[in-house]
Design a protein around this nucleic acid. Structure first.
Lengths: 287, 287
DNA sequence: CTAATAGTGTCTGTTAGACACTATCTA
DNA sequence: TAGATAGTGTCTAACAGACACTATTAG
């Protein structure tokens, strides 16, 4: 029993409708992707930023990113930008973080940006390279520390540093915890030498929250270490993301459920042998 | 010490740059918002869908939503659509779910859609009303049940039903759990009488995952009950979102940390008195 | 030598989960 | 009367967290 094609109020089938369809003249926003690429090196969380060489926010530090091409999916745009603005593309995990759509976030025009959270092991990083729209690129350490706490308002300091270039960026982040709601406001600290472009301080703050929450229930820590790692390395990653020291014995007990020990080639005489592990969600017990 | 305004390579200040800036001729995508508005009624999870009266996907069931106006933020667009396509607007919680940006998700043109997850207590719902682009609107029960499980592939059935209108929509959802990755594919079941428009089956699946995960670590269940509720109502919400029965005594023990008992007006003689509670994140112990 | 890292065992207080008991209301 | 819902107490196995002990390496 052949189904009749459906016709709309003008009597058109879908095929006919699409053939005559002209995109409307409504003004459309531009869409970009931003990438928050994190790694952990020397026991510190680091984020890749680029210094803008064009208006707006000329000279400010910004997340790498760019316009989404009309024939390119969001994920494809992220991959392209990763290749263009960093010189690493493989072994980078990413997931969507949040889409920022405030009307005035770009002074030029309406721009909606889809922010992605990216993770890669430090061993994967070579040299920073300035991209098309950047005069410079650098890895900044990221830290969020509690400044003070008073009746329902938490005040944090979000500090980004690049010691190699003597750079220092600092924002004050306040969350007001009203009932069933959460309001955040963010302001540049007067002491800060440099600024972040657009609403990027907010996306960085969201990324930190995501990392901190997600590390306890999803295997994201394994995207920040090489495929084979020691439990010491892995523990350091957890400690940095959670912002607290962990007991070694207890950490090892809980993490054993997710890793499998890897066969070592041999004991190269006088060298100390440290156990190597791989991620394995099925490793419930044993080994 | 007054700071000199920065000038770009053409010698323009930011102000001058913005004054002369002309948005480029690059083609831009359209941006829409979709709303997955859930409620829980009669012990069942329900989702609001509308039947499309225009191409494409004429006659298919779709998530309420629409184009984002150029002078309107994403959140504002969600509020507007909620008011237009449902006749409730207050007491609806919503949060961003995911942004879908595949190139071919709309056959007319490039459309990127930002999906929002909405929750509201059943007591807040009046009558469904068809909106501008819809010939009908209805609440569908949503269920995701395991069909079978074989070597690393889970196959689920996603079933949407509207008993009042005799409607039945069913999709098969498979997740392949490869190492550190998760691939999902979704196909309409041949037995299904109706179809979902666009990639909406996928967003519904994502919403169910989000609800199921988030209910255990965030107070979202409280957005699905009235401000004052019995622990029985609340437990039902948890059970529906988690898809499993819970032990009453244990549930009450764990939930006590988040609720405060509300003073009852009086015991209206022969009527049974059931304790009422309110959400209160600070209620650590006592009462 | 000391300091740092690695690997493991043990004790305790808390809690998740299973289950039992009682009371009240509806059909 | 049976069956559903409400409210609470108890027992146990599992686990998180604190801490102690040992071994190996770099400086």
């Amino acid at each position: 029993m052949e189904q009749q094609p459906l016709r709309d109020k003008r009597g058109l089938t879908e095929e006919e409708y699409l053939a005559q369809y002209k995109p409307s003249a409504y003004e459309r926003p531009s869409v970009t992707v931003d990438i928050l690429l994190f790694t952990i090196q020397d026991g510190q969380l680091k984020l890749l930023l680029v210094r803008r060489k064009n208006h707006p926010y000329l000279g400010c530090w910004a997340l790498p990113g760019g316009f989404v091409d009309i024939h390119e999916s969001l994920d494809a745009a992220v991959c392209r930008e990763l290749a263009e603005e960093t010189n690493l593309a493989s072994d980078v995990y990413f997931e969507q973080l949040y889409t920022f759509g405030d009307v005035d976030r770009d002074p030029r025009m309406r721009v909606i940006t889809c922010a992605y959270l990216g993770l890669t092991p430090a061993s994967n990083i070579r040299q920073t390279q300035a991209g098309d729209d950047a005069q410079d690129a650098a890895w900044f350490t990221v830290e969020k520390t509690m400044a003070y706490q008073a009746d329902g308002v938490n005040c944090w300091l979000l500090t980004l540093r690049c010691p190699e270039k003597g750079l220092h960026i600092q924002y004050a982040v306040k969350d007001h915890a009203e009932e069933l709601r959460k309001v955040t406001d963010i302001a540049l600290c007067p002491s800060s030498q440099e600024k972040l472009a657009f609403d990027h301080a907010r996306s960085i703050d969201m990324a930190l929250q995501r990392l901190r929450n997600k590390v306890s229930y999803a295997p994201i820590a394994f995207r920040l270490v090489p495929r084979q790692f020691t439990l010491g390395q892995l523990q350091k990653v957890y400690e940095v993301l959670l912002g607290e020291k962990l007991d070694r014995a207890n950490f090892r007990k809980t993490v054993r459920r997710m890793v499998r020990q890897v066969e070592q080639p041999a004991a190269p005489k006088g060298r100390r042998q440290v156990m190597l592990f791989r991620y394995d969600p099925l490793a419930q017990a044993g080994n």
